[in-house]
Amino acid sequence: MEFLRPASWQEALAAKAEHPAAVPIAGGTDVMVEINFDHRRPAYLMDLNRVTELQEWEIGADTVRLGASVPYTKIMEHLRTELPGLALASHTVASPQIRNRGGVGGNLGTASPAGDAHPALLAGGGQVEAASVRGTRMIPLDDFYLGVKRNALEPDELIRAVHLRKASGPQQFSKVGTRNAMVIAVCAFGIALHPDTRTVRTGIGSAAPTPIRARTAEEFLTAALDEAGLWDSRGPVPPSVAGQFADLVAGAANPIDDVRGTASYRRHALGVMARRTLGWTWQEYRDAN
């Protein structure tokens, strides 16, 4: 095993180009467990901690450019207004120690369906800034997750940042685990109201081979809110609408039975979380008037 220590982003990209098998390590949450337990012996380990710009974020007019290694703790502390859903999700990531080191780049790089950031990222919407010595490209989050622990990165690419839409409305995140802290999701759900476009977006974690959006549910709710004029009236969402939204979210999932939970429970829980988080976000939207 060889340890690569690029001192700059350009050096990192050059190293990745030279050694496409190099495994990038930042927060270490996934990579070190695999090494400690003998699941992985990469030929090259590439430390990204020295590339300081990965730990920085920039707040623009419509988006936040969030460095791949900005620790979850910083997201919770500094980006609660711009990225409320992701801030809530960040708070549920593992333990305080891990939140101090892990960032969104790790969740995206690993692309596990159980990564806590994914549902919030999908609901908020945005793009992954992938870079290589060949250049930089923007990959929409919707196209990023390809399969179980597979993503759209090319072997020579690294994640520089994610560009996330600043919240124009309330967002929520909720995750079921069988412990009250430090737990991997049995399943998770993110929702974002986008009053600027009068749309609703969602994200589902741990209930399909990849993180997914519940698109039919989104379309149904977007249409229902529109038809009833609720964006303007800020009236309550009828229980029947919330119920159908919940059912559609549950139906969007494609979960399995595993040691953490059953498929049928996952569907059920997604429905409950969808109804509740819709309730919380919509109430916040109404209260904001």
């Binding site: 340890f3 220590r5 390590i25 927060g27 270490g28 949450t29 990579v31 070190m32 467990v33 090494i35 400690n36 380990l45 430390d47 901690n49 333990s95 120690q97 891990i98 101090n100 080191r101």
Partner: peptide, 10 residues
């Protein structure tokens, strides 16, 4: 931090 998740070189 968890020192088990920090590679020594980091």
């Amino acid at each position: 931090v968890c020192s088990c998740l920090v590679a020594a070189g980091q």
